Simulated assay, not measured.
Amino acid sequence: MSKIVLLVIALVVLGGVAAAYWSYRQAVEETERAVAAIVGRAQTPLGAFQPSMVSDLPEVAQRYFNHAIKPGTPLQTTVQLQMDGKFLLGDRQEYQTYDMTAYQVLAPPSEFVWVPSMRSGLLRITGSDALVEGEGWTRFWINSLVPVVNQGASPDLNRSALTRAAMEAIWVPASLLPENGAAWEQTGPNTARVTFSTGVEPVGITLAVDGKVVEIVSMRWSNENADKVFRLQRFGGAVEAEASFGGYTIPSRVKMGNHYGTENYLPFFQVAVTEAQYL
């Protein structure tokens, strides 16, 4: 093979690598702009928490709020989270485990940007999962070059992401107050259904509460099934520990996944919240 041919091949390869990295950098910059936008939209708290504010709610809701929010805490509805843990890629039958650290900005029930870094040996997966102003995306790369998934906004993806944003309200207790569009219905001695009027469609989550949240479940629009078809299916998990940050006591260690409560359940999202800054 001539030197000229080898040079052409090398230039083509380098061009492909450069284009792939350029695409990755553009996605990173879009993610940074989205984070800044959500942070910029954080509203000034309308007041501070007092137990009398929830005295008309179902008993299980009163128990939750009086445990989760210290009296006098400003009612902030946006949070920046730092977390670490494990992420399992695959299904119940076969999966790969990655060590994970992540940053997230979250404004339930309808906006979030999650920015993880996942490692397994020399393999590193980075990117973001988001729902911002009604538009979702899921974009991840191997070692900043090879796309694993690059899905832009679509009705299916947006609907799935909306449920995630609502479920993660457990990390922003003030977002679960009726003033922020959450309606509580007690369904048992220690359970409640919370429905959000998101402005897009109602989203319901079921909480098991023993003072603190011990379990969260929802029916999520997803194609994570054997048929690879979008449909409503159980998503949820258990809370294993909690911690206090800035007057809020929130789940600090959770395991969650698709098909919760069935034989196909895989808790692919296993995280410990290490820091929470409320805005």
Rank of each mutant, 00 (worst) to 15 (best):
A18S: 10
N66I: 04
V115R: 13
F112W: 06
F235Y: 15
G136I: 05
K255I: 07
R164S: 12
S144P: 00
G204K: 00
L279C: 04
G15C: 08
V105Q: 10
A61W: 08
Q151D: 15
T97N: 09
I4Q: 14
V239C: 02
A20P: 02
A238E: 15
L157Q: 07
W141F: 13
M100L: 15
Y248A: 01
S52P: 07
L131S: 06
T138E: 14
I4D: 14
R164Y: 06
G257H: 05
T78P: 00
T101D: 11
T78V: 14
G261D: 04
R231V: 11
R92I: 13
L89W: 13
V12M: 10
R234K: 14
I142C: 03
Q277G: 13
S244C: 11
F65C: 07
V39W: 08
V273C: 09
P71R: 00
K3E: 15
L89Y: 14
M167E: 11
F230H: 10
R92Y: 04
V203T: 07
A36T: 15
P147T: 09
T249F: 02
Y21N: 12
G127K: 08
P147E: 10
L46A: 14
P74F: 07
G121W: 07
N223E: 13
V273R: 12
A243F: 07
V172D: 00
T198I: 04
Y278H: 13
I205T: 03
T195M: 01
P147A: 06
G47A: 00
V203F: 06
V79N: 01
Q76G: 01
S252L: 04
G257E: 05
D227Y: 06
A238Q: 15
V12L: 14
E185Y: 02
G127Q: 05
A19L: 10
D227F: 07
R92N: 04
L6W: 05
Q50M: 12
E201N: 02
A276F: 06
V254L: 12
L207T: 02
D156A: 08
Q26A: 15
G127H: 04
E179T: 09
G72M: 08
A272D: 12
V54F: 08
L162T: 08
G40T: 09
S117P: 09
P251D: 00
W22Y: 13
D156I: 05
D227T: 14
V239T: 06
R220L: 03
F235V: 08
A61K: 10
D210H: 10
G246S: 12
T163H: 02
A107I: 03
E275T: 12
G204N: 00
F235Q: 06
G204R: 00
E240Q: 14
S144T: 10
T262P: 00
Q43P: 03
E29P: 01
A276N: 07
K255H: 13
W184P: 06
N258F: 09
T138R: 10
A37M: 11
W184E: 09
E29K: 13
D99S: 15
I125H: 01
L14K: 00
A165G: 04
L14T: 02
I205Q: 01
D56L: 10
A107R: 13
G47N: 03
K255G: 14
V209R: 03
V148N: 03
W114G: 05
R25N: 13
D56W: 03
Y64F: 14
V132F: 00
Q151W: 14
Q62Y: 00
Y260C: 02
V8E: 04
E185C: 01
T73D: 05
